[in-house]
Simulated scan of single mutants.
Amino acid sequence: MPRKFLKRYMPDVHKLNEYGVLKPFGKLAHDPNLWHLNRRSAAGAFAVGIFFAFMPMPFQMVAAAAVAILVRVNLPLSVALVWISNPITMPPMLYGSYRVGAFLLNQPSEPFLFELSLAWFQASLSSIVPALLLGCLVLGTLAGSISYIAVRKVWRQAVQSAWDERIRLRRERLRKLKAQFQQQPRTLHDD
């Protein structure tokens, strides 16, 4: 079942409290529903986490945590999924977002060399950044929506297959009991 798989990797709220990770959110982060794992909270957490993974902004995890608290979905899962965007995956995600944004804005996508400097950012503010931000917003929304639907579907199928297995085992037990009962010799008692 997806719950067992996900719970294996979830952090404990008490350990996070010891480290002070949840201090910025105060008592809001102690709502038990934010730590509960069910189909709705897991699917929402996937949508929030993957959406913010596409956002080119500092403190993505803080933003994902704030939105998870606001919409009351699983907090640790939302924050963990932001790490889909890491130093290895971020360049292709940003480039793909830029290409999608340029297509939607009907701009030719220009080749550019990224530099981590204020001068590059100011020079590309009018040409690259609008397409990049639009593409990030579109792809983040699309990926978040797809992940929401996929998690709900996978969770539902896992629950359905567990129920089907229970029913199959119950029928098998009843069939064995019936066979045992029919094999026992019947005796009549005269009293």
Rank of each mutant, 00 (worst) to 15 (best):
D164M: 13
L133I: 12
L105G: 06
L139W: 10
T141W: 01
R99C: 08
V62Q: 00
A47R: 02
N86R: 10
L6P: 11
G44W: 04
F54V: 07
R173T: 13
D191N: 10
D31E: 00
W163A: 13
P24R: 04
L133S: 03
S124D: 11
G135D: 02
K176D: 09
F51E: 06
E172D: 14
S126Q: 14
A123I: 02
V21L: 09
E110S: 03
I146S: 03
G44A: 02
L77Y: 04
K15D: 13
W120T: 00
D164Y: 14
G96N: 00
L139P: 03
R3D: 01
A63R: 12
V62T: 04
K7F: 08
Y98D: 06
F46S: 08
Q183Y: 00
E165L: 11
Q160I: 12
L105V: 00
A63H: 10
A66V: 12
R3L: 07
L169S: 14
A131Y: 05
D190S: 13
L70H: 09
V82G: 01
P91T: 05
A123R: 10
R99I: 08
Q182P: 00
P32F: 07
F114E: 02
L188A: 13
Q122Y: 11
L188I: 13
A102K: 07
S117M: 04
A162T: 12
R173I: 13
Q157M: 15
G20L: 03
M55H: 06
L77D: 03
D31S: 11
M10G: 07
M57I: 15
V100N: 06
D190H: 12
Y95E: 01
S109V: 05
L118W: 14
R72T: 03
F25E: 09
H189P: 08
R3Q: 13
H14Q: 14
K178C: 09
A131S: 13
A179V: 14
K15L: 15
M90T: 02
A64P: 07
H14C: 12
V151F: 03
L6G: 00
F51G: 06
G44P: 08
L116I: 02
M57C: 15
D191W: 14
A65P: 04
P11K: 00
S117C: 04
K153M: 15
E172V: 05
A158S: 14
L37C: 07
M93T: 00
V67C: 06
S85G: 02
L6Q: 04
V138D: 01
I88Y: 01
R8D: 07
S145C: 12
W35C: 06
Q160M: 11
G135R: 11
P11L: 09
G140P: 01
H14F: 13
S124K: 14
L132V: 00
M10K: 06
L142N: 05
S127R: 12
I167Q: 12
